[in-house]
Design a protein around this nucleic acid. Sequence first.
DNA 1: GTGAAAGCGCTAACAG
DNA 2: CTGTTAGCGCTTTCAC
Lengths: 352, 352
Amino acid sequence: MKTEPGLVGLRVTIRDVARTAGVAVGTASKALNGRGHLAPETIQRVQQVAEKLGFHPNDLAKSLVRGRSFTVGVITSDGFGRFTTPMVGGIEEALETEQISVFLCNGQGDAERERKYVRSLLEKHVDGIIVAGRRTDPRPRLEIGSRIPVLYAYAQADPGMLCLLPDDEQGGYIAAQHLIEQGRHHLAHITGPERFEAARQRLAGMRRAMSEADLSISVGNLLHGPWEESWGREAVDELLSKQKSIDGIFCGSDQIARGVCDALRERGVKVPDDIAVVGFDNWDIIAAATRPPLTTVDMNLRELGQLAGTRLLEMIGGNQHRGVERLPCTLVIRESSGAQAMASDPRRGGID
Amino acid sequence: MKTEPGLVGLRVTIRDVARTAGVAVGTASKALNGRGHLAPETIQRVQQVAEKLGFHPNDLAKSLVRGRSFTVGVITSDGFGRFTTPMVGGIEEALETEQISVFLCNGQGDAERERKYVRSLLEKHVDGIIVAGRRTDPRPRLEIGSRIPVLYAYAQADPGMLCLLPDDEQGGYIAAQHLIEQGRHHLAHITGPERFEAARQRLAGMRRAMSEADLSISVGNLLHGPWEESWGREAVDELLSKQKSIDGIFCGSDQIARGVCDALRERGVKVPDDIAVVGFDNWDIIAAATRPPLTTVDMNLRELGQLAGTRLLEMIGGNQHRGVERLPCTLVIRESSGAQAMASDPRRGGID
DNA sequence: GTGAAAGCGCTAACAG
DNA sequence: CTGTTAGCGCTTTCAC
């Protein structure tokens, strides 16, 4: 026995709407979607009935017949940590303009889990998949025995895949360039482990900026260590124990920069007057709370996410992309670098 | 013209599998899902063919006929900030055991966006919705003209809804109790704005612990301010300028606690020797980097998320829930409280 | 302009 | 044990 329209029927279908409005199902469909040529009054009547009945079209059925689900999957590897969080926001933003919903999958960097998720997403017939990572070093490619587009954001697979990354080299460049512009010529770099591509590229960018100004990093002024606040403090000890005349430090992360600033202050070294400091990440909870507030490089992860969403949409539309695409970083000027806060051009110092 | 099985056919359907395996569609379905009674060899053959063809069942069709989508929607209000991030992890974990996928919706605390998302989720025929907030104060209920279950996690609507919250009162209780057990009897409380229910409840818990020990908070030792690190520093100035003999401070958040510790150290006050400090949140990036590392209260947000997932599953299964349910907090002992690090019982000091 | 019918891919009776 | 049939709710021809 069919539920009567207007009653509590848990499932108001288009047939209920059609019957109540006194039209055929096909007609109701057209009225609801604005397709075909219908009498204005019919359209209105159907829509009113739908409204009154609280009709919600069943996307499952819709997708089935249209052959597309209007959903995409996002597989993250760090369970929404500080890198993926803003990215996912950007992805969603780009996708929602096309009414596409996001399946969230927390891969936790575990290949087995990722495989499971891929399977599940494939069965949900998602229109595409974005892999959002937490480090830029190459990782194994996601195996998908299917023709749906895949893309990597803040993650890198092989060159056959589209990989969206921040331009760490350019980020290092603008950081160092900024210090140099403040008249600081004796620069040190305190950063993370050398095995991170990001650390190597930021350093490369710094070197490029310095060599353009006929400067270079003195031996002993380049310190690699863990990505931790305490490493920033230790590194300062190491650096200053050698009595070097340093007037600027570029740090590979805001956490390191925070440790650096704390250590300098506790030694009576004034930031930025004696030594200017620039961080990396613009992780506001760190950067804004540091004394003084950190000038730092922003990787524009939200924009990276938006780009990922946009590119995926293009790929779903049939335009394939591949290779590495890098998004410029931006300098966010606060107080630690001794500069006037001012708008900075995102493209400035770009390498292209 | 149908794509031949085995060819590049972008859509391998169960019919392709059935035809290739030389069985009927219904039989293939049973073989693939382990339903009905089939000859073992048939099952195997069908499965092999499915594998070879790279067959992925279409969940859309499956859901359509089964009347359930095996998906749920999670609407967050802070775009995956520090509260929702661990919760969403827990939610996913609880749900994946039942093979349920999560639609991620970033409501950004905007009622209009939430409405849009609800609509979209309803059309996707999700089996349930979780609203994950970032503060525990009452918020408007989500309007859903439908019979699917809804629940609030780290958010509170009206009493007709199921709301899952951390037990802030008990959290405040165990924090203060811990300080008292360390022999600290002159306690201060530096916390967030009074308009936050969480701030009021943590304070209430602290009061309960103190009154049980025949203690109370002296006038002037209770300071409300913004949830910021700098407020912690300012509050210390305010507190110590009055020359009070304080030997313990319970802070309403780790950020505040960090500011407090920094300010104390810079004034030459030893933590924990002179003054013991306890924070709230166990936000590791803050708590672990503070000098000394913070003893703090963990709201177990991941577990809260798991609970949310579990409860939603129960509700989907037909068992309705309503009212507020609170999950106990746990004390995480580090160095700032002067205690031996030791396992603590989550239930200890519970109010029930 | 509107209705009727076919079918998206799958599962679930019911026959055989 | 396996095949056939009838839909799930919707869109989309194609007639009228």
